[in-house]
Design a protein around this nucleic acid. Structure first.
Ligand SMILES: [Mn+2]
Ligand SMILES: [Mn+2]
Ligand SMILES: [Zn+2]
Ligand SMILES: [Zn+2]
Lengths: 138, 138
DNA sequence: CACTACATTAGAATCATTATAAATTATGAT
DNA sequence: ATCATAATTTATAATGATTCTAATGTAGTG
C-alpha cells in the first residue's frame, strides 16, 4: 500500500512495465527496512502466503532476473543447490551458515579491504566476493 | 605407469580400495606437475580420450566425492550450473574468468590476508574463500 | 577357493532452472 | 474509448547436473 506508487515509478523508469505481479514482488522485496537474502523457493513461499492471487513460477524467475539485470538485486556466489539473491546491492561480503543454509552480511568493518595484486592482461575485475563458511561450534 | 603404485598406496592408506577406475582417475588428476581445476564433464571428456575402457558417470561422481571427502580434492564455490573441483587443496583464492568459464589460482601473495572481525556465537569458521570475477577488458 | 563388504554400473529419479508457445495485458496512438 | 502492438504472464515441457536404485562385479581376507 504505502510505496506502491514508488514501485510503479521505479519500474517505469527502468523500462519495466509495472504489472501487478512485479509490484507484488517489489512489495515483498523492497518494502522493508532491512535488506535480506532469499532463494526463489523462499520467495515463492512468501508470495503464496502474502498474496491470494498466484504468480506463476516462470514469472517469479523472469521478474527476479529482470530485477537483477536492472541492479535491484544481486546474485550471490555460493556453490549450493539453489541460487541466492540479495536485496543489499552494495559491495559486501557474506557468512554462509551451512547448518541453516542462510547468508549473513559482513560489512566493510568486518572484513579488511581486499587488495588483488595479480593482474591478467586483457581482463578486468568485475567483482570481488568473500564467502566465509561457518558451521555449528561443537 | 610411473606412479601407479603410489596411487594404490594412497588409496589403500585412506581406506579406499584401489580399483582400476580410481587408479585411472588418479592418474589423470594427480600424475602431473601443476594443479588444476575441473568440472565433472571436463573429467568425463578427458577420461574418454585417455582411456579406452569406459568409466560410468556414476563412478566418476562417486570417486570425486570420495576423493573430496578424503581431502584429495577441494570443491570450489562458484554459483554456476556446474560444480568445480580443484587438485590444489591448499587454502587459496580464485579468479573466475566469466568468458572462458575457467578458474585461475590466486596465491597468498596475490591477496592480502583476510581477517574476519565479526564473530557469531556458537559458530566456527570452516573456510574463507575469495572469488574475483573477471571478464574481457574491452 | 569362498565369503563378504565394498564398488561399479545403467538407468531412473530428482530438482532447479530455462525454453516454448499460447493467452493476457500495458501502453501509446487513433 | 477502441485498436494495434509489443511486452508480459502462464502452464507446461525440456534441460541438465546431480543423486538414487538395485543389480552385478570385484578386492581383500582367511
Ligand atoms: Mn555442491
Ligand atoms: Mn546462475
Ligand atoms: Zn548480503
Ligand atoms: Zn585453485
Amino acid at each position: 500500500m504505502s510505496n506502491k506508487h514508488v514501485f510503479i515509478e521505479k519500474l517505469r523508469s527502468s523500462g519495466l512495465r509495472p504489472t501487478k505481479q512485479r509490484i507484488e514482488i517489489c512489495k515483498l522485496l523492497f518494502d522493508r527496512k532491512d535488506t535480506f537474502h532469499f532463494s526463489i523457493s523462499d520467495l515463492k513461499n512468501n508470495l503464496e502466503n502474502v498474496s491470494s492471487k498466484k504468480i506463476s513460477l516462470a514469472t517469479i524467475y523472469n521478474t527476479i532476473h529482470a530485477f537483477t539485470g536492472k541492479g535491484y538485486l544481486k546474485e550471490i556466489s555460493i556453490n549450493s543447490d539453489k541460487t541466492y539473491f540479495d536485496t543489499n546491492t552494495s559491495d559486501h561480503h557474506h557468512f554462509f551458515d551451512e547448518n541453516k543454509k542462510k547468508l549473513i552480511d559482513l560489512n566493510d568493518n568486518d572484513v579488511g579491504k581486499i587488495k588483488i595484486k595479480k593482474i591478467l592482461p586483457g581482463k578486468k575485475i568485475k567483482s570481488i566476493e568473500v564467502l566465509v563458511r561457518i558451521t555449528n561450534d561443537n
